[in-house]
Design a protein around this nucleic acid. Sequence first.
DNA 1: GATGAATGAGCTTTCATTCAT
DNA 2: GATGAATGAAAGCTCATTCAT
Lengths: 211, 211, 211, 211
Amino acid sequence: MRETSEQPGKRERILDAAIAAFSRHGFYRTRIRDIARAAGVADGTVYLYFANKEDLLPAIFEEVMKPYLADLKVELARLPDPCDKLHKLMEMHLHRLGRDRGLATVFQVELRHATRFMEIYAHGYLHDYFKIIQEILDAGRADGCLRENLDTAQASSAIFGMLDEAVTAWVVRGGEGDLSDRIDGLHDLVVHGLACTPADEAPPAGGTPPA
Amino acid sequence: MRETSEQPGKRERILDAAIAAFSRHGFYRTRIRDIARAAGVADGTVYLYFANKEDLLPAIFEEVMKPYLADLKVELARLPDPCDKLHKLMEMHLHRLGRDRGLATVFQVELRHATRFMEIYAHGYLHDYFKIIQEILDAGRADGCLRENLDTAQASSAIFGMLDEAVTAWVVRGGEGDLSDRIDGLHDLVVHGLACTPADEAPPAGGTPPA
Amino acid sequence: MRETSEQPGKRERILDAAIAAFSRHGFYRTRIRDIARAAGVADGTVYLYFANKEDLLPAIFEEVMKPYLADLKVELARLPDPCDKLHKLMEMHLHRLGRDRGLATVFQVELRHATRFMEIYAHGYLHDYFKIIQEILDAGRADGCLRENLDTAQASSAIFGMLDEAVTAWVVRGGEGDLSDRIDGLHDLVVHGLACTPADEAPPAGGTPPA
Amino acid sequence: MRETSEQPGKRERILDAAIAAFSRHGFYRTRIRDIARAAGVADGTVYLYFANKEDLLPAIFEEVMKPYLADLKVELARLPDPCDKLHKLMEMHLHRLGRDRGLATVFQVELRHATRFMEIYAHGYLHDYFKIIQEILDAGRADGCLRENLDTAQASSAIFGMLDEAVTAWVVRGGEGDLSDRIDGLHDLVVHGLACTPADEAPPAGGTPPA
DNA sequence: GATGAATGAGCTTTCATTCAT
DNA sequence: GATGAATGAAAGCTCATTCAT
């Protein structure tokens, strides 16, 4: 039986194949043929679902970000405390990419090949993501648990940068080690900073010093 | 008529042309011919200085990183205080890339196209850079101004991530605004964290109220 | 929803759509999909009526030539005088193509794309057409109104060439002007030639005996 | 040994190969590779001389027409009598194409595949050619040997049509027979027309001289 | 060292055609 | 008969690289 309409899953299979191929050989060194073969479709079929090769990049991004952001919002809604929210966000970020090195590679490296990378970055899902981080920080500030004089826009960018770099480093290291191990350390760092707190004796919340 | 003899700076001109071209059109969409034309040399001449197109990427990286790291070391040697050193490093990082958007674009986006990006990243100059950051943090810990229980490897990665993201955001925004404006904010954030310092909540000398 | 049952005129609609599309974009630049869309049928349906794309060309030719030749024969039968017949033929030729620039374009330009153009040309309807012209000339010769020493095969080819060129020129000019305006001029030219009638000059040798 | 500058004749060899290939397989069925192979160059070399495949068509046309028109003008200048000039033109037309069936095929069939066929036809060399014919007829009219009431623009088009059709018919017949045999017959026909000289009969019926 | 004409492998994309429904 | 999603062969063109001069 062939569906009259598009076969469900075919689009998804192409995207999965693209993620795998891009992460292994890079965007430009990946040929449409390889993706099609891996997805079990003909070359031309790729073009029934995507306008061209370049279009696969934002499609991958969207495919992953959409459910991720939806999940994230649900989880965050459950936690009243802004610091807990922040911890959860960092956790989910590192979990999502840390469980799939191929995907992480595409996100950290290949997505930047897009001609319209700038637009992907500046608008859409990534922009939403920054907003979510910033809202957490704003809530924390209103709550009194974060500093009054915090530039939350800059801080959310910095937090994203830390997470992003953690993922990139992990990808570059070959995906060895568990990215999730970083969560508490990063959370502690971002919340309390590098400096000795005046109460240096008090153990940092949840921070597990690595060896 | 072009000079028959060795032209000083020819290699440098090729690299400059490559930076400009890569930042404008991206690595893969840039043709050797465009670089050669912009550098005022013949196509084949590029191959007298570089093994192939791909080789231009690490060469650019090295060309910029080498003097940058040399300068950085000189400047850091002048400052005894680790926190000042850190501030200086952040300042120089943002200055170096913030004064040349083309270069910044290549660094933030195009360098990742290199097949051997992983190696560029994991070894060589970038590795040295991480080490320098980490040494500052180690010194700060020894000095007592930074937390004893600091994972300085992770923290240096996080600091780099913040800086990197700041540059990327600036590049994506089109290079508008002054990247240097971020220095103090980022330094403060990384040193003191997001949270209210206990000093804000309790008198400095009065101890820390238990959580 | 499209009719399940046979739709009258579907074949004709496909041919009309093909003529329009070929005349606008040329045979090779026209896609079956465009023809199908314009005809209001599915791509596959075209293949129920025609073996392949190439087959549309002779089909168009036949579709137009068949009724044209039938009409022509009827009209010619009405006229006893060979010169009148010739005039009528020229009139009908220029009328038929002059009233439909799209069709004319296909006839003058696109039909030549057929792999079997040679066969279309040499046999079938076009061959019949040449025969009809030639028969008129033969009748004229028998009748005494045309020159005794006329190579009617060559002359019919020449007459067709004149008409064909007139149509091509009109097509190339963009179809502006009225092709029918040419009828009398061409008829006069072909019947009397370029030269001054011998009446103007002295007959070369002893004059020509009146009929 | 490879020439530093463009190898003389390379462009010409490509054009010759293109003529041969187009005439044998048609424009669209000819692959660049075939042309390149036949010309003894690499595929890419074709693109050093021509912008794209389509560009080969006008280049062929020009390559042939330029020397042809030059020769033609020289020959015509030698002959004082307009009727002799016309005879010479018809002779040269049929000779030029009649001695090279491949070229004739390209001229009669393949050139029409050009997207810009209309422009090739309407302007440039072909336009010049029409002008030359018309000038001969104008001279003949002034001279008194051709009819006073002749629309020389239309007549030149008609003459070209006759010649063109003669060549097409010859091409379609497979190039058998000698095209030059047609010269005198066609010249006679065009000069004197089909009809018995008017000395025999009454003035022509229906001939309306155009403005 | 410098040149740039020449090379040719390799890729994306198109589109005529098929066939399960 | 009608459909249109799927197919996959095919080719125009690009461009990194070479090498005779």
